[in-house]
Nucleic acid binder design. Sequence first.
DNA 1: CGGGAGCTGTTAAGCGGTTAATCACAGTAG
DNA 2: CTACTGTGATTAACCGCTTAACAGCTCCCG
Lengths: 338, 338
Amino acid sequence: MGAKRPTISDIAKAAGVSTGAVSYALNNRPGVSEPTRRRIMDIADRLGWVPSSAARSLSDGRANAIGLVVDRPARVIGVEPYFMQLIAGIQGALAGGPTALLLQVTDNAQAELAAYRRWWGERRVDGVLLVDLVEDDPRVELVRELRLPAVVLGEPEVADLPCVWTDDEAAVAEVLEYLVALGHRRIVRVAGPTRFVHTRTRSRAFTSAAARLGLGEARIVHTDYSDEAAARVTRRVLTGGDPPTALVFDNDVMAVSALGVAHELGLSVPEQLSLVAWDDSALCRLVRPALSAVRRPIAERGAAAVRLLLDVIAGEAVEHVKTSDPELVPRSSTGPAA
Amino acid sequence: MGAKRPTISDIAKAAGVSTGAVSYALNNRPGVSEPTRRRIMDIADRLGWVPSSAARSLSDGRANAIGLVVDRPARVIGVEPYFMQLIAGIQGALAGGPTALLLQVTDNAQAELAAYRRWWGERRVDGVLLVDLVEDDPRVELVRELRLPAVVLGEPEVADLPCVWTDDEAAVAEVLEYLVALGHRRIVRVAGPTRFVHTRTRSRAFTSAAARLGLGEARIVHTDYSDEAAARVTRRVLTGGDPPTALVFDNDVMAVSALGVAHELGLSVPEQLSLVAWDDSALCRLVRPALSAVRRPIAERGAAAVRLLLDVIAGEAVEHVKTSDPELVPRSSTGPAA
DNA sequence: CGGGAGCTGTTAAGCGGTTAATCACAGTAG
DNA sequence: CTACTGTGATTAACCGCTTAACAGCTCCCG
């Protein structure tokens, strides 16, 4: 059962006032005199009083919690540093406030939808964060139908939901220009699953930048973000006809995996093959050669999303938030084309 | 505010019975006839009823949530695959049930204690999972004082709390025997922070196995689990007098980092230096040479801990749970001593 | 035929807060 | 002296659900 927790009526008894007065005092609302308020607050923290979230939820209808569902296969989620960094950023913005984070990891889209629906039904969360949006994402429809406050981490204009976004397109162009400047012309993008909007956005940017730079053959191959898939795809691309001299990846893990494949195939990096990773977690610095990568402000994204969501929940008018720009961090995995 | 959510009194109205009857029916308790129960349940799921967690908490005192606080510096948490795997395991055991997971990431022990205290005060959680225990851990004292159900992921007998443990000592011995069989005699263990109990346990096992195997010089150096610290330490150890021919690490990230250092120093792995990682996330397979590692059942630990905690919360008598044993997975980072 | 025993259902209190409505009691104006 | 205005409090309803206590009904037995 746990030790006894003081309630406002304990405080009321100790202070010789009604529970109503205690409530007014503790919430800094008018209705009690200054001396009384002080007395009540003294007693409250002498008793170590903390409001019961259930009671508060029940009466004011707010859960003081937000939810995040991560729908990625278990084997991917472990190595992918993205989510932990995102969570760290989320926590940073939540720290100090009354709001808690509910986390769920699912392995299919249905389960994710069910999770939102249930949280909403149980009134467990005041709002949710949406990541990895897909085209015509059913979650968008769902939160709209439920009128569940939601913020998207992704690209704006894909849903009429408030959104925290990062200018990936510019970064894609920057990477391509960089590689072209190094003399590369056959460049392949190893992307995540097509269904993700962010994948498509980057692919579009990749294709158009390639066209602009006069690269006829801007190939894109898709994976599921896993290291195995990346290895398979990389192997195929490198051993196929007309192999590329540079590869651009959609995350860190795949780039590292490709480094291993290059090693296997006896291709030296960056002399014979250049690699560019995406996200730039510590992984990129860990391997040899250290990977050139596009650094994105992941924790910043999480924190911004939380702030935005809290505003939405508070009923304020909000606008899309753009984070700081990604930046290419050149290291040792990129060099002049062979 | 969100769309309207049905309550039991909506159901009661629709079924022409009292809310009490509805409650009995929906909870499968005696007190209503079979036909009535069925009618009520039909109406309930036609209306899409989901119980309000706040209301339920308030009346039965249970939060239907458990809490996990991870107290590691932000820069470590991102790359460390351990926690995400643990969380995946936790979710697996929670899936389908009514219990949610509250997650908090903090960057100091005080904040962690505060988090538990607050969750308890708010009655937000029914119990908590404790990881990374230290000697005389204040959290143990805290949960005892609060009578907050808790389960330790770590070694038994360090606290009188139920515990999920893995036989690391045997694994340490196995690794050492393996290395000695390969001819290594100068072996250094690159460990996590001394304050963690699991660090000490492994160190003790390391020292005693070394003694048993007649290795006089079983050195242990400590780090904070970060790749930077590991690189620093590895560099120092390898360039100092009487350098080791094999290194055993306390996690994956440090081993990968050391691989980079070896590369820097022109030491070839495994010809001149053998490396053994710990945990065996995908990281180990990603790098070249692939790292020999001790694989631990991390997700299994998480799942077992959840089940144990739910039992404790339910008031059942429980015992420590031992997970399956870790196993050494030899890959290409270990070989005969030079 | 009186009086349990069993079902099926209702009533109402309570969980810990919030808050509209009300009240007692100044002080102050008319 | 009455009426009005504020101020600082209390009261009680309510949020949605659980559950002990009780009530009506049928059935069965001595």
